[in-house]
Design a binder for these strands. Structure first.
Lengths: 234, 234
DNA sequence: CCGCTGTCAATTGTCTGACAACCCATTAAG
DNA sequence: CTTAATGGGTTGTCAGACAATTGACAGCGG
């Protein structure tokens, strides 16, 4: 059995088990899923780390909360478009600007490039019911992304584009969360007043071997999206 | 060896290994740490889930990024006071209000209580260099927290108080992130204008068996604190 | 009847040894 | 020079076993 399949089946099991209920014992579950106890335990450790289940020696493994909560959290990197699709919110893309720029000093520094290196800059507005809800900027070193690629296949998400071409394999993203007053460019794009409160994500996406590949700024108008994160104790 | 010790030693090893470098092979590392390969793999799976390391069959295990990044992220539940202490930011507590209230319908609903049940309401302002930086509200069902306890030992953090008394054991917290315009009470507490942008966390803390124990609203002025979260792929 | 204690089965935590799958460098063959 | 085979090293998985812990239950004494 594939590892991913195992994780999904376990997630389904956890989701379908009432909170507080005990899961089948490890030997039974391992036999039922057709894997060894060691493999099952390793997979279960992931859910334990995420606070979904809770194990106690001599007693059993219990469901702490439904898996659904996590699936929509910030822990998993997901494009706005896929998130909207999942929750059934119809979004469209307005005003798209794609161009090749030379990186400024600060951007080059963040992306670990030489100052002046070519980057592809993608900026667009996300519309919900034809009203601006988010403004997204992505900066990707040229070579990982081409202007033609964006103009050809673009559905609104740079992340989905990078995920589709499986090389380089993506690792994780570090996302800093702020509340800022909208500067003029952002205010214009979102059709709000300068100085209005917007939620800003500053994200840096890394490949598995730690190279930054996408520096993005996301501005969200309050109300359209709900973001959350599950925080574990110790 | 204790599980926590093992995790800490592994975290130290990862932190002291340059990004991109290979870790010792599993058999060697297991022997070196005095645990079996199965146990080591289970522990390592935690770091893999968090995007700290990256394993590839037939090749090895590699460090994806330094552990330090995660340690200050939102994934781990930590009080503002401890976070400030860790980054060397001197904070003090201003205006503390503690009182027993009867829960409103919405609060009772969130905390899974009968409407009108008694809750302990704690509100205080966090000062950085004698200037307001955050406004925190906690609502805890009576029984988990007493007014005397707060007035006696309080250092500014309800979370630390709940952590100190080890029963009930805490599980995880779900934190929703918003950017909102400050309402009048918050604006007054933080000494800002009504309508100014503040970052708001709405958190619900659960025990390991899934009972809500602390409903908290946190308002942060931009600039004093930096919050981030690591998002993993798929 | 109540409370205490020892016993026992069930469950998770860990260990051992082994094999499979995979990757990479080296070597051999063409 | 190019290509195929090979072998060592690494992670992925497995089966079986034992240790540690827990909760329930029977038995006993008061």
């Amino acid at each position: 059995m594939d590892r991913q399949i195992l994780q999904e089946r376990l997630a389904a099991l956890i989701a379908s088990t009432p909170v507080g209920e005990r899961l089948p014992s490890e030997p039974k579950l391992a036999k039922q899923l057709g894997v060894s106890r060691a493999t099952l335990r390793e997979a279960m450790r992931v859910f334990e780390t995420q606070g979904l289940v809770w194990r106690r020696q001599g007693v059993g493994t219990f469901v702490a909360r439904p898996a659904q909560v996590l699936e929509s959290g910030l822990e998993v990197l997901e494009s706005i478009e896929r998130m909207a699709e999942r929750i059934g919110l119809p979004v469209t893309m307005g005003e798209l600007h794609v161009q090749v720029q030379s990186a400024s000093r600060s951007v080059a520094n963040v992306l670990q490039l030489e100052p002046g290196a070519s980057i592809v800059h993608v900026a667009r507005v996300i519309l919900v019911e034809d009203r601006p809800a988010a403004y997204l900027e992505d900066m990707v070193p040229e070579g990982y992304l081409t202007v033609e690629e964006v103009n050809g296949y673009f559905t609104g998400s740079v992340l989905d584009l990078l995920l589709r071409r499986e090389s380089p394999p993506l690792g994780s993203s570090r996302c800093e969360i702020n509340s800022v007053a909208a500067e003029s460019a952002v205010a214009r794009a979102l059709n709000i007043q300068r100085g209005d409160a917007v939620l800003r994500f500053v994200s840096l996406l890394y490949t598995v071997d730690g190279k930054p590949i996408d520096y993005s700024l996301s501005y969200f108008l309050p109300g359209y999206f709900r973001f959350h994160v599950v925080r574990r104790v110790s």
